[in-house]
Amino acid sequence: MNHAIGKLSGVTEEHQGPVRLLPWSGPDGKPCYLVGEGGGHVSRVADEIEGVQLGMADDILGHAEDMLGGRQVTSRELRFLARGLADALRDVRRVAESRGARLAAAGA
């Protein structure tokens, strides 16, 4: 099956086979993609990193709930917490986008 990567973040080349958004960016901050069936080493590493990212998001959410649950927090603590939450949200959004695209491709 022929998939146009152009549907994913402006990449314009055409490739044979499924395309996976990876859970990391290139040095220039652009998304990285894996073209293929998804059973190789890079795919397994991506699965592991996604699991770590989701676990870290859960941890920072728990920390936020504890932190905001009763004690007075400083503006510096809130900025640090907001940065951690923003980073976690970005990671979780990327995981969801990647998994959603793979589900859509599998259903097609």
Rank of each mutant, 00 (worst) to 15 (best):
39 G>S: 08
50 E>D: 15
27 P>R: 04
62 G>V: 01
44 R>W: 10
10 G>K: 05
4 A>K: 12
24 W>G: 00
83 R>A: 12
42 V>Y: 04
28 D>T: 08
17 G>V: 06
30 K>S: 08
98 S>I: 09
88 A>S: 15
10 G>W: 14
8 L>C: 03
105 A>F: 00
3 H>M: 10
21 L>T: 08
80 F>K: 05
85 L>T: 10
51 G>R: 09
84 G>L: 05
38 G>C: 11
4 A>V: 00
60 I>V: 15
22 L>D: 06
71 R>S: 12
15 H>Q: 00
79 R>Y: 00
49 I>Y: 10
81 L>S: 10
34 L>P: 00
81 L>N: 00
24 W>K: 00
7 K>W: 02
22 L>A: 09
16 Q>G: 13
26 G>E: 03
35 V>I: 00
81 L>H: 02
103 L>P: 01
38 G>L: 07
41 H>W: 07
48 E>C: 02
87 D>P: 01
88 A>Q: 11
85 L>M: 11
6 G>P: 13
97 E>A: 15
81 L>W: 06
98 S>L: 11
16 Q>C: 04
21 L>E: 01
60 I>W: 04
95 V>R: 12
79 R>K: 15
45 V>T: 03
40 G>N: 10
14 E>L: 03
40 G>D: 13
46 A>Q: 01
44 R>D: 06
31 P>F: 10
54 L>R: 11
103 L>Q: 13
90 R>N: 15
93 R>A: 12
57 A>E: 11
17 G>Y: 10
2 N>Q: 05
74 T>K: 10
18 P>K: 15
36 G>D: 04
21 L>R: 08
6 G>T: 08
51 G>F: 11
64 A>D: 06
24 W>V: 09
37 E>N: 03
75 S>Q: 14
65 E>A: 09
50 E>K: 09
